[in-house]
Design a protein around this nucleic acid. Structure first.
Lengths: 162, 162
DNA sequence: TATTTATAGTTACATTTGTAACTAATTGCA
DNA sequence: TGCAATTAGTTACAAATGTAACTATAAATA
């Protein structure tokens, strides 16, 4: 009589087939792997790494601009920048015309050095991850992610407007 | 002379093209939207919702089994189960043969009621999200997620073994 | 010019989550 | 049987992150 694991209240719902769950699982698995490169080896949090990545490519952005470009929250960015400055990785100088803004740069010595060490590791991980896919699959993946991102933003906007 | 935003330290790296970042962004956007349905309307955290979803489909699982099935961590599951019990949504009875185990069930009244309310909302959100994709794209998405998940687990295993 | 409004960034509080240490119960094995 | 090793689940501590309130500066407007 032990059918209790089968009585499903007459609703078919499998978490492992639910897209939000699968996306979350995949993202977490990937993050876990990639973060080894910067968390354990360089003592950077995910947010800190993203700030470094953005500043390496776009020196001189302010915290707000970093935030926008990385779709991150205001507060984590502020905190990450503080820590990066404490560690001597980021330099923060007052803006000449607007004293609210603080343009940010990787420091010439430690900051860019770290950037040059970490980026190849990140790219290597990505390469490894994608080696399971064919050229066509990769192209498809890029298109699907883009479509889903746009769709999710649309749905969220609709929900927000009731 | 303002080329500072272009000096990229001779490394091409765009965060917004980096797969781990895009996956994280997509997952967060989706989670944010879907969580409105259970966080704001029913006061459930993501983990709590997942536990409810699993128990609705598989009544009688223990916390460890829920954890395995949902690929969640031990501690969050324990805490979620405690809260769900406090809220009268989950029932926890000692196992007859192994007193370490505590089989879990949604309560007949509140628990299953909640389950029946939330699951359609979750499925509706998923439907809305996927409405942007064709049948073929959906099939491709499922295959790609599966492949990437397997690939990420492989890479992580390799990295863990040094 | 004076006053309101908006913006950049920080700080305070609460919530969530992970790591590690812990308790209680069971299993394995000498 | 008796002791060591596992396992289920909880608790304690630390780190990360979001919301809201706050400070300082700048822009808008009257």
């Amino acid at each position: 009589m032990n059918q209790s694991a089968v009585k499903n209240l007459n609703i078919e719902f499998l978490l492992e087939e639910f897209l939000p769950y699968r996306l979350s699982l995949l993202s977490n698995t990937v993050s876990e792997g990639i973060s080894v490169a910067y968390r354990k080896q360089h003592g950077l949090s995910v947010t800190e790494w993203r700030v470094v990545a953005i500043l390496g490519r776009f020196p001189g952005l302010t915290a707000s601009e970093v935030m926008e470009r990385g779709a991150m929250d205001k507060v984590p960015v502020s905190r990450a920048v503080n820590k990066l400055q404490e560690k001597g990785l980021v330099d923060r100088r007052p803006h000449s015309e607007d004293r609210r803004r603080l343009p940010l740069k990787l420091t010439a010595a430690k900051g860019t050095n770290l950037f040059h060490k970490i980026v190849p590791k990140a790219l290597a991980y990505e390469q490894e991850l994608l080696s399971a896919l064919s050229e066509d699959e990769l192209a498809g993946l890029n298109r699907l992610i883009q479509k889903l991102q746009a769709s999710a933003e649309n749905v969220n906007r609709m929900v927000a407007d009731h």
